[in-house]
């Protein structure tokens, strides 16, 4: 009985042909495994970020704040441009990560000081990428 009930009513070959739009399945995604964070250089500088430098910066920041536990947070570098970077990390670690970045005074590179800040963070990358920012040129003259 239950097995018969469980059969998928919509195998692909016989998707209902409708004139109207028809939702077949709706679901709310469970809390995601990962969170995403957008980091930017705090001050304009001539320093160009690169993945290795970013990784070492994040490791220093996390180890200062949380010691060995902090360095164990697995961080995936998704994209690095000259002054900003996108990283992915496990969702439960996001609060610790943001706190560590905020509390870190930065590292020196030559004469310059590199300080990163968390520009935005959240669970859904798409909504973060194209959010509107302060001082956006869309409002400009």
């Amino acid at each position: 009985m239950t097995e018969a009930m469980d059969l998928d009513p919509h195998p692909r070959s016989s998707l209902p042909k409708t004139k109207k739009s028809l939702p077949l399945t709706t679901l709310t995604l469970p809390p995601s495994t990962f969170s995403y964070a957008h980091l930017t250089l705090l001050s304009p500088s001539t320093v160009q970020l690169d993945p290795l430098q970013l990784k070492s910066y994040l490791t220093s920041a996390l180890s200062q704040f949380l010691g060995q536990t902090g360095t164990a947070i697995p961080i995936d570098i998704l994209s690095v441009s000259s002054s900003s970077a996108w990283v992915r990390l496990p969702r439960p670690d996001l609060a610790a990560f943001s706190a560590a970045i905020a509390a870190f005074p930065g590292i020196s590179s030559g004469r310059e000081r590199i300080v990163l800040k968390v520009e935005a963070a959240g669970d859904y990358l798409g909504a973060l990428i194209s959010r509107s920012k302060d001082g956006d040129d869309i409002w400009g003259p």
Binding site: L22, L24, G122
Partner: peptide, 14 residues
Amino acid sequence: YQSSKCFVTHGVMG
């Protein structure tokens, strides 16, 4: 940070 929710719909369009 966790205020967003994601709703997924799988369906057919006319």
